[in-house]
Nucleic acid binder design. Structure first.
Lengths: 350, 350
DNA sequence: GCCTGCACAGCAAGCGCTTTCTATTGAGGA
DNA sequence: TCCTCAATAGAAAGCGCTTGCTGTGCAGGC
């Protein structure tokens, strides 16, 4: 029914071992023989059986990429970067690795499930993106899983998430969310803003906490009181930005700036301000985070912190493939760059 | 070193066969025995060896999703929808399927490579998104590959692409790009526009051609001459929209509307118009296609054709899993909905 | 009391490949 | 001329799992 190695061997008049060696190219085979084998492969339209190959060789060419939301360009960009780096000459037949992008929806359970699935597939490497959940049992469970993945031979790289305590040998490329958050609020304070609303991401996530802490550090450093009524939490989506902005306006009509947890949330904030008839930045300044591609097309263009998502993803991919040295200590911090654009300006006189 | 089925069997004092049956749950096992086995699995932290399992059972729980660009929400949304539908009770241990999102970059070669890789992995199903290349040899190669995938037992579903001639049993959910394109231009003509620039996608792609043909049909139906100088081709990105708009303005300063191949291109067009000091829609109307999430946040909000990407992807996923009946003839057309928003208006008097 | 049948559990034969070890050849050196 | 060695090819032993078939024990029917 389906063509196997043995069929190819028979047609090429060689042993299965020889066919395998031609396909894997890691053992001397006479040119004439190779030729004959390749012809047979072609004629029979032979396709290697991946599972059998992985079983026998005890390796696989799958690389897992865990993302919170594949429909969000924040993750899409990193995933695409990782993927662009993992295909390579290295390894096995065809030389092609396969990226498996897994959508966890931000749920630790699904994260765990996918890690198990990847372990089951004996993935060559696993890149985990997105912030971590701040919840001891979950963190421990995931850390343990990552450690076991590493022990089983998969390279584990965290991209945009802090190092996991329970997986000491996992490389971590963490984003400087705190520093970025701080610079952003510094910028607003520098413009003269004092009443600044903050729309944070979901609680219990490292990304959310770090960005918020950066904001608070900036306030504290400038001696601006941090009014807890001006900080709201919500998911990383447009809706959250919209609703939270309306609520902030209700709570503090005098506010002159809104900082959002990310660009998508910021877009929602802009929409709410527009719907309220407020002008950006004359009435209220708005700032985001990430600098996703669409942020420059907002009107006015969004002031934000650019995270080098593609570069970080690419680096994670290379490290996962062993094509780039691990950073010292297995940890590297990736910094963001403040992009000042039209959505922030001096506050209106009050 | 690594724990195997046999280790679990030994610890639970049963045969490997029994462990396998407990894990797969497709054969009667006494409750007490099952209990004992599960405990052993837990205690040993056993994880099934996927390749071995797939080899022995001649099936796998991988589902491939081919996309042109994973960083583009157009594909991200569909991929996420497919993925949300493929996890299910069906099948093998864990009941979890794994989505493999493959980034082809729109290149037919990579498309072919990934299809081979999926065939090699004996994927349970393959969902191919994105328009097809219009090039006979490539189309035939890909069609043949899809047919062979189908013959090898993978369910093949095309999502957002016309049926492949060479893969008769592949289900196709095609987008009504032509109809959408026509309605969009109809709308502009109805507003009074006669000089309409068109920024098309890359040549040799079905999506590009169909959308453009819809535009041309609308022009013809209204008796408006189709000036070929007003149609430009380029990639589906912002840059292309920006550059093409400047070029259109150069060629025909009198034009009053620009239709873009998709929303991303439209955003680039808006940026170019703004940079030229032209007002949207008072000086020039702009329309996009797809209705991606950010389109509503453009200022003014983008008139576009909404494609139900999530719904289509979800349906493709269900069909791929055999959880929804195939459409009659294996082909279904998915229609778009015209979303009239602020970026289009009556043309300025000239 | 003996036989049939059911509910489980185990045996063992692969699934299709990789890889170690061994055999075969021919070339070159002594 | 014989021997050694390098270069290739083959034989065969698994890799860890699934599953058809073969027990085995016990309940019920005669």
């Amino acid at each position: 029914m389906t063509v196997t190695l043995a069929d190819v061997a028979a047609r090429a008049q060689v042993s299965p071992a020889t066919v395998s060696r031609v396909l894997n190219g890691n053992y001397p085979v006479a040119a004439a023989t190779r030729e004959r084998v390749l012809r047979a492969v072609d004629e029979l339209d032979y396709v290697l059986n991946g599972p059998a190959s992985s079983l026998a060789a005890a390796t696989s060419d799958l690389v897992g990429i865990l993302v919170n939301d594949i429909a969000d360009p924040f993750f899409g960009i990193m995933a695409s970067a990782v993927q662009s780096e993992i295909t390579g000459p290295g390894g096995r037949a065809g030389g092609e690795r396969m990226a498996v992008v897994c959508n966890t929806g931000g749920s630790p359970e699904r994260e765990l499930t996918y890690l198990t699935l990847l372990q089951r597939q004996r993935a060559a490497a696993v890149v985990v993106t997105g912030g971590a959940i701040e919840n001891a049992p979950h963190a421990a469970a995931i850390g343990g899983k990552l450690r076991r993945l590493g022990e089983a031979g998969s390279r584990v790289v965290l991209c945009g998430r802090p190092p996991a305590d329970d997986a000491p040998d996992a490389v971590a490329l963490t984003f400087d969310n705190r520093g970025g958050g701080r610079r952003l609020t510094d910028h607003l304070i520098g413009l003269g803003h004092r009443r600044i609303g903050y729309i944070a991401g979901p609680t219990e996530r490292t990304t959310t906490r770090h960005r918020l802490e950066g904001h608070q550090e900036a306030l504290a450093a400038a001696g601006v009181a941090d009014d807890p009524r001006l900080t709201l939490h919500g998911p990383y989506d447009r809706r959250s930005g919209y609703d939270a902005t309306l609520e902030l306006l209700r709570r503090a009509p005098e506010l002159t700036a809104v900082v959002a947890a990310n660009d998508t949330v910021a877009l929602g904030a802009c929409a709410a301000l527009r719907d309220r008839g407020l002008s950006i930045p004359d009435d209220v300044s708005v700032a985001g985070f990430d600098d996703l591609p669409f942020s420059i097309d907002a009107v006015p263009a969004l002031t934000t912190v650019r995270l080098p998502l593609y570069e970080a993803g690419a680096r994670a991919g290379r490290i996962a493939m062993g094509r780039e040295e691990e950073p010292p200590g297995g940890i590297a911090t990736v910094h963001g760059e403040l992009m000042v654009r039209g959505s922030t300006g001096v506050p209106r006189p009050y």
